[in-house]
């Protein structure tokens, strides 16, 4: 944390922390506007914008029509010409409707124009499963955007980072995509008041350990920490890294940990194949840290399946705490 004013620390939810960041940004910079579907009087599908419209009015907390492609494009155009829009997708799945503007325009305009412009747009994506919303409202598509040069992609796991990364995203001159796991919105945590930023591109070691490294993202950070606590009783000390940013990756933090523990477990909710775990694994395999590995790298990711509706099936297709415990134990005990 890059603390500037964070003296008073309170316990608030992840959603409140995001709202507080937007409130600060709206108050201190007239160029900041919020755009999205039902973010005004409704308060957002997940009540993240809440009552900000009462404070800042409909000109700055703008309800858009259900037009993800057009809305994202308007945000890109506004960012190109002097505003600092924060565009909320109602569900991250709807990014599929706006890929043209995100991938072809926002990410590339600066490069295509030889550096003549910047596109300081922030996009927020409520992501992940666990709400019973089934296959079209539960995906984790962050790796899609993580594949695109020109974008920065973050996945805050704690209320403190949700606020700090949003303010860092607004300070950033380039497009920043923020994936927020829906099940985290109600999670409470210690959050400093006032303005501070969490650096983009820096992972956080959430728990130190010497037997294996668990690299996790978003809600999986919490599941990994729960698993690590359970393993502690068995004498297994897992180091848990919260990746926080998936583009650009914090190479130093991950490699240093792997050099120390010699074992790597990647845990993420998105579909396992071609996901962030593949990138982290390859990064380790291509580095000198490879020489420190005592066992094959293990990945735990989502099943090769859309997210099902039935709650038991829904849980079954993404890694759960017992899955992490089992995988970590196997790695630590040399059974992999």
């Amino acid at each position: 944390m890059n603390a500037q004013a964070g003296i008073d620390v309170r316990e608030i939810s992840y959603a409140q922390a995001i709202r507080e960041a937007m409130d600060i940004a709206l108050a201190e910079d007239d160029r900041v506007i919020l755009m999205g579907e039902d973010i005004g009087v409704y308060g957002g599908a997940f009540q993240v914008t809440g009552d900000l419209v009462d404070k800042y009015g409909t000109d700055r907390v703008m309800d858009t029509p259900i037009s993800e492609l057009g809305g994202a494009g308007v945000a890109v155009g506004a960012a190109l010409t002097g505003l600092r829009p924060i565009f909320e997708f109602q569900f991250s799945d709807f990014a599929t409707l706006a890929m043209e503007q995100i991938v072809n325009q926002a990410a590339k305009v600066r490069y295509m124009l030889g550096g003549a412009v910047s596109v300081p747009v922030v996009m927020r994506f409520p992501a992940g499963s666990g709400t019973g919303a089934a296959a079209q409202h539960s995906q984790s598509l962050e790796a899609w955007l993580g594949h695109v040069p020109g974008l920065k992609v973050v996945q805050p796991a704690t209320p403190e980072d949700a606020k700090g990364l949003l303010l860092a995203a607004l300070d950033d001159p380039d497009p920043v995509m923020i994936f927020e796991h829906k099940l985290l919105y109600k999670m409470k945590g210690q959050v400093p008041s006032g303005r501070y930023t969490t650096p983009i591109g820096k992972a956080a070691v959430r728990r130190e350990g010497s037997h294996l490294t668990i690299v996790a993202t978003a809600i999986m950070v919490h599941k990994a920490l729960e698993a690590a606590k359970a393993l502690e009783d068995e004498g297994i000390e897992a180091e848990v890294i919260d990746l926080r940013t998936i583009r650009p990756l914090d190479r130093d933090t991950v490699l240093a940990s792997v050099r120390k523990t010699g074992k790597l477990l990647c845990v993420y909710e998105a579909v396992k194949t071609l996901g962030i775990g593949a990138e982290v694994s390859a990064m380790v395999a291509e580095s000198d840290a490879f020489d420190f590995l005592d066992a094959p790298i293990v990945r735990l990711g989502g099943a090769e399946s859309p997210i099902p509706y039935n709650p038991e099936l829904e849980k079954a297709v993404v890694p759960q705490v017992p899955d992490i415990i089992e995988a970590a134990r196997g790695l630590a005990e040399g059974r992999v």
Binding site: G70, G73, A75, G77, A78, L83, Q105, A116, V117
Partner: peptide, 28 residues
């Protein structure tokens, strides 16, 4: 593109510039 003269750029995507133009108008 010629940003100094107000040309925000050609576009390789058919229709790609239309929402961007609306965004520029929103800024104005």
């Amino acid at each position: 593109a010629d940003v100094e003269k107000g040309n925000l750029g050609a576009n390789g995507i058919v229709g790609g510039g239309i929402p961007i133009a609306v965004g520029a108008a929103l800024s104005a």
